[in-house]
Design a protein around this nucleic acid. Structure first.
Lengths: 210, 210
DNA sequence: GAAAAATCCCCCTTAACGGGGTATTTTTTA
DNA sequence: TAAAAAATACCCCGTTAAGGGGGATTTTTC
């Protein structure tokens, strides 16, 4: 794993007990070493480049710059490092935002120590560890509504509307007449109880019809 | 876990060796029992309701109805069951499609037996297990491009364009003048080298600017 | 203090949008 | 196999948003 080198870990977490807990845990693992711990991103910022961590355990709710805001900044400083978010929050938005920002993994703090150690190994191996509950949230965010009121064709057309295409573009794409597209769109509006593209798209996304 | 009941597992996999391998593996785990195994969805379809599996291990590449097409059908028959996809394919599209269709977990076939057993436990506990490589793919699909050519405001406006809103709606949303929106949109088009909303949206999605 | 970003204004033409109504052919399903 | 649902296509209409052109000012940021 990872070139036989001992992997360098940095921990950024404001709660001292938790921070030292993780540090202790990792120090007891021969494959990893803790190169630094910080109580906030702002405190560690200028030293991170010198620390050269391979993996950063990052808390989301930090004083000053939040963990979420820190992610892109860290990646700019250390493009080859991986970030694992560790937090008590597990709202869908928080999780998706963290991953969108560039975090490699996401664990809730109730995750057992052993799993954190495994997770560090997984990111070093190029994987993207997610705790089962987090993964569940991510998966749910991807899942489509099974009970759409729309027909297959209508769903297809709605998807095209969602890409910003106009009627004629959709017609070309689906090998049908522009008028047919128009009829479908009208029926979509009727079924979704809306009367514009933007409303239809907003409704469709909210209800995961597309 | 799961009410102290022995969890009922069904395996749908066309390769007999693999199928029996999993069956053997699970039969050796006291918490689970294999209630049925099928070489294809079409063969098992009519019996699934009687089998009442809690978890279905489902291969993607099946003869006849594919595993992907089978997911929504299975969920219709057994709304309380969970599906774990097991496959050699790990393309982003395949994974996202399977999860979108309603699968609870996704593992590549190189996953160790022990992890499959753990994964079954996780779905029974309401989690969504993903193997690290699959999770990585999912995470990557969520990640945004860190080097967008657009400014913050432009990105914000592009996101609004993506929802199908028109200029005046965006203006209202962002508390700025319609004309300002127009200017931003013009600059976005210039930077992305496009000249319509649909092109801008398509480009932005492809390059994960939004 | 210079550069970049964000704000706002006017003119113009084209064509896309959405609402109205009607009708035929496939496909599905009961 | 008959009825229902889905997919296809056409016409008329008025409104208005889109995109291209050009110019200008004020904030932010570095």
């Amino acid at each position: 794993m990872y070139n036989n080198q001992i992997a360098r870990i940095t921990i950024i977490e404001d709660d001292e007990t938790i921070r030292e807990g993780y540090a202790y845990l990792i120090r007891n693992t021969s494959a990893y070493e803790v190169v630094s711990t910080y109580a906030s991103f702002d405190l560690g910022k200028s030293k991170l480049t010198a620390d050269r961590p391979d993996v950063i355990l990052l808390d989301i709710q930090l004083p000053g710059t939040s963990g979420l805001e820190a992610v892109p900044q860290i990646l700019k400083l250390l493009p080859n490092s991986s970030i694992i978010m560790l937090t008590v929050y597990e709202t869908e938005k928080m999780i998706l935002d963290a991953l969108a920002a560039g975090a490699s993994g996401y664990f809730t703090k109730n995750t057992s120590s052993a799993k954190i150690i495994v997770a560090i190994g997984e990111v070093l191996d190029g994987g993207g560890p997610l705790s089962p509950d987090v993964a569940k949230t991510v998966i749910r965010s991807l899942q489509k509504n099974q009970e759409s009121p729309l027909t297959k064709r209508e769903t297809q057309i709605l998807r095209q509307l969602d890409t910003g295409k106009d009627r004629s573009e959709i017609a070309l794409e689906l090998f049908i007449d522009v008028e047919t597209v128009k009829t479908h769109v009208k029926n979509i509006y009727l079924k979704l109880n809306v009367n514009s593209r933007s409303e239809a798209i907003a409704f469709a996304r909210k209800n995961k019809l597309i």
